[in-house]
Design a protein around this nucleic acid. Structure first.
Length: 362
DNA sequence: AAGCCGTGGGA
DNA sequence: TTCCCAAGGCT
């Protein structure tokens, strides 16, 4: 069946009018007070939506407040140093979001006089702005009736309408976008979209939904048929691959610490870290030799002081933290430097390496 | 299409 | 512990 046909079929006999009214009324009564809901400033909405991608509200709040404090306008963010932006993002994860956001804001400043576009195509062409974020900005900041389909929306609507498609597939998101286009309120698309998400966050939760408190229970086919906990359908993800490393805390005779900047693309791009020995390639015995080849320094490998695990969405670093002392030689490495331990706060580190900071001798 | 991209919290 | 998840986007 074609998508348009399915949408018509799914919404056959569904009381859109009543559903909209109940949802929007509930949202206006029960919505949480959040910093990005203070006004409709498109820049604030934008920043919040980027931070909230795959990230919990409680985690985002302090980052958002600090970020808006530091970069209150598109101009301020556009002019900032990229390392400064990454530092403000430190610990939040998915760091390409920060780089893409700044690049996109710079484009808004140079191409659109600092005004966030209210046009779907212009908005969607900005780096880091995908279908969800585009719809969220258009509806929340500009009151334009566009779908903003995230995980919440797919969970809520999969239950309301009993849609059993796998929500991890892109084509399923498009199906829900089509459904939202039919359902959305033209009078208040902002409250409709946010209401759908808020309902997913507060009531229609993944494991144990509070159906008895649900403002649209009467519209919910899954509840009616007793299958609400079976939905949404989602393919299970595979296990992360484990990689063993040594993490080296290298100090010279002055007590300065060796850190290096990661590549500007890929995992933890442009962040700083302590040197890491991939144990899959290098044996424990060969560490000093390997280190001399990489950094041009002769070292004494000391004791193990900690074990740190870093869980990513697709892999796991298992790191043994080793103290290392420089004996002789001159540092010869493109992206590595010695810094005083107290200067580490100037550099953005991934969380796993922040955990190693306390082991540095001061 | 499916894999890459972080982190912390809760069951 | 292990698993899943939380307002996705890029390639």
């Amino acid at each position: 069946m074609k998508r348009a046909e399915r949408i018509k079929h799914i919404l056959n006999n569904f009381d859109k009018e009543s559903y909209r009214k109940n949802l929007i009324h509930w949202f206006k009564e029960e919505q949480r007070i959040l910093p990005w809901r203070e006004n409709q400033d498109p820049y604030r909405v934008w920043v919040s939506e980027i931070m909230l991608q795959q990230t919990r509200v409680d985690t985002v709040i302090p980052y958002f407040n600090h970020f808006m404090d530091k970069f209150p306008t598109p101009d301020a963010l556009a002019q900032a140093d990229e390392q400064e932006v990454l530092k403000a993002w430190e610990g939040l994860g998915y760091y390409s979001r920060a780089r893409n956001l700044q690049n996109a804001v710079r484009e808004v400043v140079s191409e659109y006089e600092g005004v966030v576009p209210a046009d779907a195509e212009e908005l969607g062409n900005l780096k880091g702005v995908g279908p969800y974020t585009r719809g969220a900005i258009l509806s929340i900041a500009y009151d334009i009736p566009e779908p903003a389909v995230d995980g919440n929306v797919m969970r809520v609507l999969s239950r309301i309408l009993r849609v059993e498609d796998d929500i991890s597939k892109q084509s399923t998101r498009k199906l829900f976008e089509g459904l939202v286009k039919e359902l959305i309120s033209d009078e208040d698309p902002s409250s409709f979209n946010q209401g759908l998400m808020e309902l997913g966050a507060l009531v229609c939760t993944p494991k144990t939904p509070s159906c008895m408190l649900c403002p649209v229970q009467e519209h919910c086919r899954a509840f009616d048929e007793g299958v609400e906990t079976e939905l949404p359908v989602k393919a299970s993800k595979k296990k992360q691959k484990k990689s063993p490393y040594l993490l080296l805390l290298v100090q010279n005779e002055k007590g300065d610490v060796l850190i290096e900047q990661r590549p500007d693309t890929g995992l933890l791009a442009s962040l700083w870290q302590y040197p890491m020995v991939p144990l899959e390639d290098i044996g424990h015995e060969a560490v000093a030799n390997w280190f001399y080849g990489e950094y041009g320094l002769k070292v004494e490998v000391g004791e193990s002081v900690d074990r740190i695990k870093h869980v990513f969405s697709h892999l796991i670093w298992e790191m043994e933290v080793i103290k290392v002392t420089v004996k002789e030689g001159t540092l010869d490495h493109e992206r590595a430097i010695f810094i005083a331990p107290e200067d580490m706060e100037d550099y953005p580190f991934p969380v796993s390496h922040q955990k190693a900071h306390p082991h540095i001798n001061r």
